[in-house]
Amino acid sequence: MQDLNGKSIAILATNGFEQSELEVPLNTLREAGAKVHVVSLEGGAIKGWDKDDWGNSVPVDKVLSSTSANDYDALVLPGGQINPDLLRVETDALDFIKAFWEQKKVVAAICHAPWLLVETGIVKGRKVTSYPSVKTDVINAGGLWEDSKVVTDQGLITSRNPDDLDAFCEKIAEEINEGRHERRAA
């Protein structure tokens, strides 16, 4: 894993995030030296979903309404079926995601989280992957869906499922260390 000392990363999630898809990036990126904050709609803690039942709670570091993309180098969006479905109807969450993209910062989404990229319009004209059940949504939104473990397109990182978390985290570190990404129009 590349060194991330001095870098700040937000993980946007709410109740129902897939346990490993939040906890593995959180721990891996912190171990690489990054300051990582779990950002959510409300303070306290959010409860994960662990494969087929409720999992552990994770403390919320920052409340979305008092957080800015300006404070971070990258954004990580964990999946799970529940988490991105709840977030994609929250205007503040969508605006937060779009702000990272507009500032040419790294945006990384795994599993079902590309639903959030669909909702924000970020997938249009971009190479992405996702959990297979999200494929049609990505294609209908103009995304160029690939059946790959991890796909990167000018600072946009997507990953298929929790089996690919190591490669996903490695790519996040690589893209952050490359700096802001100039993006050609999609």
Rank of each mutant, 00 (worst) to 15 (best):
149 K>A: 10
149 K>R: 09
150 V>E: 00
150 V>Q: 00
150 V>H: 01
150 V>W: 01
150 V>S: 00
150 V>G: 00
150 V>L: 00
151 V>S: 12
152 T>I: 15
153 D>C: 04
153 D>I: 04
153 D>N: 10
155 G>I: 01
155 G>L: 02
155 G>V: 04
155 G>D: 01
155 G>H: 05
155 G>C: 07
156 L>H: 08
156 L>V: 08
156 L>N: 07
156 L>A: 06
156 L>S: 01
156 L>E: 02
157 I>G: 04
157 I>E: 04
157 I>L: 11
158 T>K: 01
158 T>G: 04
158 T>I: 04
158 T>E: 02
159 S>T: 01
160 R>W: 01
160 R>S: 09
160 R>G: 04
160 R>K: 12
160 R>Y: 02
160 R>V: 13
160 R>E: 07
161 N>A: 11
161 N>T: 12
161 N>E: 12
161 N>D: 13
162 P>F: 11
162 P>I: 08
162 P>S: 14
162 P>K: 13
162 P>L: 13
162 P>Y: 15
163 D>P: 06
163 D>W: 10
163 D>E: 13
163 D>G: 12
164 D>T: 08
164 D>H: 12
165 L>N: 10
165 L>E: 05
165 L>R: 07
165 L>T: 05
165 L>S: 04
165 L>M: 08
165 L>Y: 11
166 D>P: 04
166 D>C: 03
166 D>I: 09
167 A>P: 02
167 A>V: 03
168 F>M: 01
168 F>G: 00
168 F>I: 01
168 F>P: 00
168 F>H: 00
169 C>R: 03
169 C>Y: 04
169 C>I: 02
169 C>T: 02
170 E>K: 13
170 E>N: 14
170 E>F: 03
170 E>V: 05
171 K>T: 15
171 K>H: 10
172 I>T: 02
172 I>G: 02
172 I>M: 11
172 I>Y: 05
173 A>S: 14
173 A>D: 08
173 A>T: 15
173 A>W: 06
174 E>A: 15
174 E>I: 10
174 E>Y: 14
174 E>K: 15
175 E>G: 05
175 E>M: 11
175 E>H: 09
175 E>D: 10
175 E>R: 08
176 I>H: 09
176 I>L: 03
176 I>K: 08
176 I>G: 03
176 I>M: 15
176 I>V: 15
176 I>E: 06
176 I>Q: 11
177 N>R: 11
177 N>D: 15
177 N>Q: 13
177 N>A: 12
177 N>C: 15
178 E>K: 13
178 E>Y: 09
178 E>C: 09
178 E>N: 09
